[in-house]
């Protein structure tokens, strides 16, 4: 079993682990030949299935194992994130799977030449005419090398063979979400208000903060919260409902004609005032706050609403070129009441 790679996009990798860490402390990391998959399945709350193209974060990537060159690991996200953070100013960062005292580790080797080295009594760069030979000779051992060891568990293929991505029915409404920072600050505010109301009235009773999220096929998104004492809602309009690609839908054009979203297009209005045409889900406000953590990656987000059933978010990582896309899929179940 062998895994070794250069991390070429340390910022993305760090933000990714930070976002995932807010949902659960442990991730199933599947290192394959063409993809790297992060999966978080918490006890309760939102599941994430992230599929990343290798070049989204890695360079010179090599993985070998007896099981079709796939390695499955259980990784603690907190320490991994912490380790990656120390590489933010690195000149190079390498990650590899290794073993110490029989404990498998993901070892990060980070080389930095940050301001640290400039403190030394040894002058660098001051006199340019020292010649490049001189400079190069010392550049290599001028670096400070940091190694971070993240303990991991190797998962047998049998262990993970029972894990499957959730199946959902065709969504009723799909819509591109407004900027997540905007959405997050409003939903956080709503959740706070609901909690404050619950505290004064029912004391220690289990505080549930149910956010009502709804969207229609005319570019509207509505977020609302109701308690005994109040009801607040915010409506976004003029959002985009992306067109379905016939090649991606079962039965092509026929499938689109029969698609639930096609029916939903006939209902509701673009000003969001109509009571018809909304597909809505009830989700937990605190859990939603954790999901919104993905906003730091700055990707485009498409939300798919299955009325009274589930909300699925597809977060597309921004890519430099037009290569394979990396996508994080969030499965959020709707509460019945």
């Amino acid at each position: 079993m062998r895994f070794k790679a250069q991390i070429h996009n340390i910022h993305t990798f760090t933000k990714l682990t930070a976002s995932l860490n807010s949902l659960g402390p442990l991730a199933w990391l599947k290192l394959g030949d063409e993809q790297v998959c992060f999966t978080i399945i918490p006890e309760q709350g939102t599941q994430v299935w992230a599929v990343l193209s290798i070049d989204a974060i890695f360079d010179t990537y090599a993985v070998q194992s007896a099981a079709n060159n796939v390695i499955n690991l259980e990784v603690p996200l907190g320490p991994l994130n912490r380790a990656l953070k120390s590489a933010l100013n690195a000149t190079s960062a390498q990650i590899r799977l290794t073993k110490k005292d029989n404990i498998p580790l993901l070892a990060l080797t980070i080389a930095t030449t940050s301001s640290n080295n400039s403190y030394s009594a040894f002058p660098t760069g001051g006199s340019r005419d020292d010649g490049t030979m001189f400079h190069d000779q010392f550049a290599a051992n001028r670096e400070t090398i940091i190694t971070q060891e993240v303990p991991v568990r190797v998962l047998a293929p049998d262990t993970v063979s029972g894990l499957h991505e959730p199946q959902t029915r065709e969504p009723d409404v799909h819509i591109i979400l407004p900027p997540l920072m905007q959405l997050k600050s409003i939903s956080d505010r709503f959740t706070k208000l609901a909690l404050a109301g619950a505290k004064t009235s029912s004391g220690a009773a289990a505080t549930r903060t149910r956010l009502d999220m709804a969207a229609n096929m005319h570019g509207c998104l509505r977020m609302s919260i109701k308690t005994d004492a109040m009801s607040i809602s915010s409506v976004w309009t003029d959002l985009a409902n992306p067109e379905l690609d016939p090649s991606q839908v079962a039965n092509g054009d026929m499938g689109i004609a029969e698609h639930p979203s096609t029916r939903m297009k006939l209902l509701g209005s673009a000003d969001g005032r109509s009571e018809e045409g909304w597909a809505s889900v009830r989700i937990d406000g605190k859990d939603w706050g954790k999901v919104m953590s993905v906003g730091r990656l700055g990707g485009r987000v498409i939300a798919c609403f299955c009325h009274e059933h589930a909300l699925i978010l597809y977060v597309y990582l921004p890519t430099d070129g037009g290569e394979d896309e990396s996508v994080l899929t969030y499965y959020i179940s709707s509460y019945s009441a």
């Binding site: 912490r82 380790a83 404990i103 080295n117 040894f122 060891e149």
Partner: peptide
């Protein structure tokens, strides 16, 4: 502390910083 089994994942990071002695005064 060396922990076993599932506990291993709670083991804190081990960090080693290798500094050139020339960076010392």
């Amino acid at each position: 502390k060396i922990s076993n089994g599932k506990e291993i994942l709670k083991h804190p990071l081990v960090t080693a910083v290798a500094v050139n002695t020339s960076d010392f005064e």
